[in-house]
Amino acid sequence: MLQRTDASQRGELYRVKLAINGAPHDVEVAPWVTLLDLLREGLGLTGTKKGCDHGQCGACTVLLDGMRVNACLLLAVTCDDRAITTIEGVASLEPTAGGGLHPLQDAFMDHDAFQCGYCTPGQICSAVGLIAEGHAHSRDEVRELMSGNLCRCGAYSNIADAVWQVLRDGTAGEGGR
C-alpha cells in the first residue's frame, strides 16, 4: 500500500520497504530519487558505482528480485516491496568454502579481470544475473550478454574469461538459479 508522509521542504516523501542484501529497510524517499542514489547516498552502500548515470555504462548494475537492472534508471519509489542485491551482498548468495567470496569474485581475481576496478561491482552483479538467466552457452554469448557493462580500461577479454569459466565450470551456477 502506497503511503505518503507529511510534505516537507523537499516535497512529498513516500514510504518504501525494500529488502537489501537480505535485510529489511523502511525508508522515506522523494519520488525523483533513483535507486542508485538511495543506495549510495541514503544507505551508504557505495559499492554500487555511478558511472554515466544514464543507463549507458552498467556500473550501477544491481539485482532486483534476482534480475540485473541499471539502478540509475529506476526510481526508488517504484521498487517498493522488492528485493535488491548489491555487490555488498553477492558473496552471501553463494559463499565458497575458502575466503567467503562469490565464485565470480574469485574468478575476477584469478583472471585479473579489471584494472581500475570502477566497473567491477556492476560487472559482477551483471554476471550473477547472466548466469541465473541461463541464456549464455558460449564465450561469444557471454560477451554479447555482458555488453551492457562497459570497461574503459578495456579488460573485456579477461572479464569474459572469468565469467565464462564460472559459467562453464558451474561453480556459481546452481545458487544463482
Binding site: N70, G129, S147
Partner: peptide, 9 residues
Amino acid sequence: GASAQLRNA
C-alpha cells in the same frame, strides 16, 4: 536492442 539490464526493465 539495448542491453540485458535494460531488457529486464
